[in-house]
């Protein structure tokens, strides 16, 4: 029980810290303003959309729909469509997630809604 309060305490403090340093307009001292939230969400959706287009293009596009056409070309000894279906798309998937991780933390910071690093690490250690 004591531990529980400690955890919650940490998370509340984290919140206040950020508000002081970033100093954004917030409602009730706890939430980001409506329009800021909606801008953040739009930026998020746009970024997601772009990444999902790539996701679709390498897997369903290059690996399945256009695979026969791409097979005319060779890449690393593979017919290209075959390579995308059994290798290439998977590598792109990995890259996409890390691009997402980096891009999103930029967007988070730009809108001042990031989860602060140091405090959370402390939280992690306390609970593990």
């Amino acid at each position: 029980m004591a531990k529980e309060q400690q955890d919650q305490g940490t998370s509340v403090r984290r919140h206040d810290d950020k508000e002081d340093t970033v100093g954004q307009p917030r409602h009730g001292g706890d939430t980001v303003s409506e329009s800021r939230l909606s801008d953040y969400w739009q930026a998020n959706l746009k970024f997601l959309g772009a990444l999902l287009v790539v996701w679709f293009a390498v897997s369903f596009g290059a690996g399945i729909i256009f695979a026969d056409t791409l097979d005319q070309y060779t890449f690393l000894g593979f017919p290209l469509g075959f390579w995308f279906a059994q290798q290439g798309a998977i590598y792109v998937f990995v890259v996409l997630i890390f691009v997402y991780v980096i891009g999103m933390s930029r967007i988070d910071r730009a809108y001042g809604v990031e989860d602060d690093d140091e405090d959370s690490n402390t939280t992690g250690e306390q609970t593990s």
């Binding site: 980001v32 989860d115 939280t123």
Partner: peptide, 11 residues
């Protein structure tokens, strides 16, 4: 709205 924001995550 709250779920959509990364900040303020608790255990």
């Amino acid at each position: 709205d709250d779920i959509r924001l990364p900040s303020g995550v608790g255990v």
